[in-house]
Nucleic acid binder design. Structure first.
Lengths: 213, 213
DNA sequence: AAAAAAATACCAATTTCTAGGTATTGGAAG
DNA sequence: CTTCCAATACCTAGAAATTGGTATTTTTTT
């Protein structure tokens, strides 16, 4: 344990009770000099800017931003901070995205204090901590990478489809020809390799659920 | 505060770290004689049976059961226990269902220690604690009550539709006529007052998300 | 400036879905 | 025992979606 190094930790999580719990749990860990809590990303960014914490514990779901955005913003504001996601999310795609975006760790809230401390220490030694699930190679389709290939218009139309609008209705709303909407729909289907709009809607709703739209 | 009454509390939550935090946070509250933690509903039920706790703090999402089921089972096993939902869920329908099923409180994890203690004390005086959202009368469609009116077959077919299967494919899988599937689909649409399968799929996916299927 | 991608629009054919009706069977509830 | 509902199945007509191809204009990227 590198307990001789005292670090500043910023914990961003809208679940106040959880944050208070963490605070109480880590309260007498001597290697933590400061443990600050922010309940929104905005608040977190303001604090991170001033505090320049060595470590940021970040919840994936925040009221004012989605996980990936939060991660990117924080790293821009405070590049020296190491970010560990601490969240209940467990989707492999989400975890992989966080890893790719430069997080040094991803912890689920199902872990215990011991595991948390281990991860904190590892992070300070620049050793990443990720759940084993992302090591499993059994993966073929990554929703996020797929959605990235949709253009703005296509995303817009995909969303309207998943709200139950017909092509004709979408056309009217966007002041476009129905034929144009049909073309867009066809392109969306091809790009996402889906075979009907039921699958498209299921796909879109799952994205919304996972908060990576 | 009724601090002179010492109660036994059971906390059921798969998020160990959160539970440890709560434990640490409530550790020196004298009105709590015992604070036991269970990580699954099964474990929780075993403990509740023996312990007969005055109070149960229950997470809505558990790995081995959904929220309503958990609530019902616990009340059967330990009828004298008051149950407070302590969860990140905030859907008004879910809250209302919990209230209807006999919970004495519903708390989101965004609250703080103070609010939690207040709710615990109230619960022991038989005073319920629910978020103000369910008092708001602006509600017309309750997904759960809607889904309840679907028959088994209809639910099954609705789910297959939301997986992207066509009527013909569903018919083949279930060894039924495609015409039968069409009839079922029509009845589903009518019962749920939806106008196309896109809306149906969105509806089903939201239910899955909310864990009230 | 040239090439690539996105957005737009059209035609035609086919499949799938939606909506109206009807009807038989079996089981559950009264 | 009868009445109600779920599950099954059929017919028909029309609406919507899917799939094939093509083409022009604008925007973005190289």
């Amino acid at each position: 344990m590198l307990n001789f190094i005292e670090i500043k930790v910023l914990h961003i999580d809208d679940h106040l009770l959880f944050a208070q719990g963490i605070h109480s749990l880590l309260g007498n860990e001597t290697f933590i000099r400061e443990l600050i809590h922010a309940q929104t990303l905005n608040e977190g960014i303001r604090i991170a800017e001033k505090l320049q914490p060595e470590l940021i514990l970040l919840d994936y779901f925040l009221p004012d931003a989605n996980g990936i955005e939060s991660l990117q913003l924080l790293q821009k504001i405070s590049p020296s901070s190491k970010v560990i996601l601490l969240t209940m999310e467990s989707n492999p795609d989400v975890i992989e995205n966080c890893k790719r975006e430069g997080a040094i760790g991803f912890l689920q809230k199902t872990i215990g204090k011991k595991t948390l401390l281990e991860a904190l220490n590892k992070a300070m030694q620049n050793i990443p901590t990720f759940p084993p699930s992302i090591l499993a190679p059994t993966r073929q389709s990554n929703p996020q990478s797929l959605v990235k290939i949709l253009s703005k218009r296509e995303k817009q139309i995909a969303n309207m489809v998943s709200e139950g609008l017909t092509s004709a209705e979408i056309a009217k709303k966007l002041f476009l020809s129905e034929l144009t909407i049909n073309t867009h729909r066809r392109n969306i289907m091809q790009k996402l390799e889906l075979k009907n709009s039921a699958q498209l809607v299921a796909f879109i709703e799952k994205l919304k659920f996972m908060d990576i739209s």
